[in-house]
């Protein structure tokens, strides 16, 4: 072994040492963490044909969304677990501060009973919708081909749990002021039967079974989430302000900060993917496939927001404006 080179300690992980610059905390703890991409024949260290290996080979590796180096992806926010909690603890302190102050001022008691009914029908059933975002994001998390993508999807799932939790909290609180509106008990019925929700319900049930990871990402992050955010957060928030519900308007504004971050990573991922031939066509195809369902969902929901002029048209235009920034 005398001729053999003896490896010397490096300043960082060997996989980052080639970069010749000091890696950030983000890179040290986020890059190249998945080991299920090392062997294309067997993502997991078992029989190459066992069912989960087939699932990954078919739905992650076998689809049209391809890149030679997914590990090159970087989250533009460079969030790590530690900083995610710092950011979101601050955000939750703000939101719970709002809940506290508005409760102190008896905000809910000042609302019109008809608006109370609207909230029971159009806001608190949203916890089912937000929960579908949580589930769908967790699917993108487990199917992404690089840990830097996986992390963004995981944080997005946690943020969706956050939105869902706000809706649950408000359902309980509103039930104290409006005991006859079905808060905390009637949401499922609205979600399953009210025409305002059926578009989003259909959209999300179908997005949840889009198994190809590229399609799951595009359908969720480029089509479904923007539709939810523009209609159920932004337009409902506007309607709330028209009805003296300052709290809901401020709450949806706070949630839209999360949504903006989700769009930033989705944008960065699409930009990177467009560097590879074939991806543009794949993304375009998926957008064409999913957009009509999302439009239908926006139409159905916004039809119930009678006091927001042009709600549906504005919301649809906003989703398209986002996709235009990506070149679609």
């Amino acid at each position: 072994m005398s001729e053999v080179e003896v490896l010397k300690p490096l300043k960082t992980w060997s996989h980052l040492a080639k970069n010749r610059r000091k890696p950030s905390e983000y890179e040290i703890v986020s890059a190249n963490l998945l080991y299920n991409t090392r062997d294309p024949n067997a993502p997991y260290e078992l029989d190459p044909d066992m069912s989960m290996n087939r699932w990954y080979k078919k739905y992650r590796d076998g689809g049209p969304f391809q890149h030679d180096d997914w590990n090159a992806f970087r989250d533009p926010d460079e969030l790590v677990y530690r900083t995610y909690n710092m950011v979101q603890d601050g955000q939750e302190t703000y939101v719970f501060g709002l809940f506290d102050q508005f409760n102190e001022r008896e905000h809910d008691k000042a609302l019109e009973p008809t608006w109370g009914g609207t909230l029971a029908r159009l806001y608190t059933p949203g916890r089912y919708l937000f929960h579908t975002l949580q589930m769908a994001s967790a699917y993108v998390q487990q199917m992404s081909p690089a840990s830097t993508i996986t992390n963004c999807a995981a944080f997005q799932a946690a943020d969706s749990l956050r939105w869902m939790s706000h809706a649950a909290y408000r359902a309980k609180e509103l039930s104290l002021t409006f005991p006859d509106k079905g808060f905390g008990t009637g949401e499922r019925t609205y979600w399953e039967n009210d025409p305002a929700w059926q578009g989003f319900r259909e959209l999300m049930e179908k997005v949840l079974i889009a198994w190809d990871w590229g399609e799951a990402f595009v359908a969720l992050n480029l089509v479904a989430k923007p539709a939810v955010e523009e209609a159920v957060l932004r337009k409902l928030g506007q309607s709330a302000r028209h009805n003296g519900d300052t709290l809901l308007g401020m709450l949806t504004d706070a949630q839209l900060l999360d949504a903006d971050r989700h769009r930033r990573w989705a944008t960065a991922l699409v930009k990177m993917a467009l560097g590879k031939a074939g991806n543009a066509e794949a993304i375009k195809g998926w957008i064409t496939k999913w957009e009509p369902l999302a439009d239908k969902a926006i139409d159905a929901f916004c039809a119930a927001l009678s006091d927001v002029p042009n709600a549906a048209a504005d919301a649809k235009a906003a989703t398209r404006a986002f996709r235009r920034t990506l070149g679609f």
């Binding site: 869902m164 939790s165 649950a168 309980k172 499922r188 049930e205 179908k206």
Partner: peptide, 17 residues
């Protein structure tokens, strides 16, 4: 605990799939 149970009442009956 006032709202915890509501936040875990999220099962629904799928219709479109």
């Amino acid at each position: 605990l006032d709202w915890y149970d509501i936040a875990r009442t999220t099962n629904w009956t799928p219709k479109y799939v």
